[in-house]
Structures are given as C-alpha cells and as structure tokens.
C-alpha cells in the first residue's frame, strides 16, 4: 500500500504542452484544460480526465491509499504485439494498467474507489483490471465499505482472449457478494463506457450516474450502423439517451459529483 503522494501526480497544472480539445478541436494549453477540470473553457465539452486527477477531485485531501498498485499485465496468451502495446500504454498513461483502486474518504465518508484510466489502452479490461476491481469489492465486502467506481472503457481487452471475457463474470460475482451483504455501490459512467464493461459492472450499481454527453452503450455505434444500414444521430448511446431509456439514475456534472456522491455515501453510511 502506498499514499498517492508517493506516486508523482503528472504535473498537468505545470504542463507546458499544447493539446486539442476532444470536442471542439480548438488548441489550448494542457495546464488551462487541467485548471478547468478537463472541461474545455471554450466549448464546455467534457474531455477525458486522467484517473489520478479524478481521485484528486473526489477524495478528501490526503486520504487516498492505493491498493494493488504494483500488479502488472503479462502477455498471457502470447498475443502478437501485446508486449509493445503494454509498454506504450504505460509510457502514455504513467500507470501500470487500466485501473487505479484504493480506499479514501469523500466528504468524510469512508469508501473504496476504482477509477479507470482512458490513457491505458482506452481503459480496456484485461485480467489486471478485472482482478483489481474484484479484489476491491471483496475487500469492501469484508470491511462493510461502499464502493464508488468510475468507468471508461472500450470493452474487454482482446489481447488477453477469453481471460478478459472472464473478468466480466468475475467482477459481476464480486459485486453480487458485496451487494448481498447490504453494501452500497455507486458507479459513474464516463466517456466512453462500452462493450464488456457496460455489460457487467458499469450497469450493476445501486446508483448509476453518468457525465453529461458521455457515450454509454454496448455494441459499437459504427458496427450498428454497418449492420442496420441506418445512420445514427449523435445522441445515440449518449448519457442523455440512456437516462431517457431508464438505465441511469441521473446525469451529474463533473463539478457536482463530489458533493452528490458524498451525500449518497452519507445516506447509505452504516
């Protein structure tokens, strides 16, 4: 276990890089984007937020303690080019795999947290992601703690074959165990939450929220367009679409999430 401060937070606030807004494609400094919580100050569009920035946004100061931070993926089925992809993902994200797990307090409430990292192979779920999240739910069940999760994922990681698909069942089982013991689980779907993550722990929360405009769905939009021959509107599989179809409890703006989650943790506190 380590304190978050042991791992250097990438210095987004001191960054001199120029980046493009994911939504309006305008150039701006990474520092400016970080200062605005990765919401574009020009267009108001939500950009993907690094996992550790989310933790900093959500957790009470200096309360996050990371778990299983040293676990790393291996090329378990000798999939071609996977070793290189892992090395590139580590360099790009500064993380060892696609999820950060640990304990913290939010508005004074103790909580177990997992936050997926989009910069690590677009949050794809392999054995490390699945196993760390399952272990977190087991830990939370053992200590009667709630779980708050942030998802961002392209789905199961195909480079680990069936071992990845298995994680959907494994994590769902761990969520069930945690739930059977009367513990609270809140999940926030961020852009994009798709495939095997949608078809498992992203849709199993007692409370399921999403960020405005986030893509939340199962099958890929382009694949559906190919299969059906229908051009789908931009709103298809948006958080607003999911809210309208009854699959989300609410859409919560980024700046309100800490207070919203803190309030619900207090209501469910044991």
């Amino acid at each position: 276990m380590s304190d978050m401060k042991h791992k250097e937070l990438p210095d987004y606030l001191g960054s001199t890089l120029t980046v493009k807004c994911e939504k309006c494609k305008e150039e701006l400094s990474e520092r400016e984007l970080a200062e605005h919580g990765f919401i574009c100050p020009r267009c108001g569009g939500y950009n993907r937020m690094p996992a550790r920035m989310r933790l900093a946004m959500l957790c009470d100061e200096d309360t996050f303690r990371e778990m299983n931070e040293c676990v790393e993926s291996e090329n378990l089925i000798s999939f071609p080019d996977y070793d290189e992809k892992l090395a590139a993902a580590k360099a790009k994200s500064g993380e060892r795999d696609g999820v950060v797990c640990g304990t913290a307090r939010i508005c004074g409430n103790p909580v177990c947290l997992f936050v997926m990292e989009s910069k690590f192979m677009m949050g794809s779920m392999g054995t490390v992601v699945g196993d760390k999240i399952a272990a977190l739910f087991e830990y939370a069940a053992k200590h009667s703690l709630p779980v708050v999760g942030y998802t961002v994922s392209g789905g199961a990681r195909m480079q680990e074959g069936m071992l990845s698909l298995w994680q959907m069942a494994k994590v769902s089982g761990a969520v069930k165990k945690h739930s059977n013991a009367g513990n609270f689980y809140l999940v926030c779907c961020t852009d994009p939450t798709t495939g095997g993550v949608t078809a498992s722990y992203a849709m199993l929360g007692d409370v399921i929220i999403a960020e405005p405009g986030a893509l939340v769905g199962f099958a890929g939009k382009r694949v559906i367009e190919q299969v059906t021959g229908v051009k789908l509107p931009a709103s298809f599989q948006s958080a607003e679409f999911q809210l309208g179809n009854g699959f989300l409890d609410d859409i919560v703006p980024r700046e309100e999430q800490r207070g919203y989650i803190g309030h619900l943790l207090a209501i469910h506190r044991k």
């Binding site: 959907m168 769902s172 949608t198 498992s200 722990y201 099958a219 559906i224 059906t228």
Partner: peptide, 22 residues
C-alpha cells in the same frame, strides 16, 4: 447488434444475467 437492443439495454441485460447466475 441493433438500435432497439441498445434502447432496451443490451449491456444491462447481460450484466444482470452474469450477476444473478453467479
């Protein structure tokens, strides 16, 4: 893989089966 399947929660339906079957 279709529009109606997404509207009616294909992901949520699969998730619930995994969860309950376990």
């Amino acid at each position: 893989c279709g529009i109606g399947a997404e509207e009616r929660g294909e992901g949520a339906a699969i998730a619930e089966n995994l969860y309950e079957m376990m």
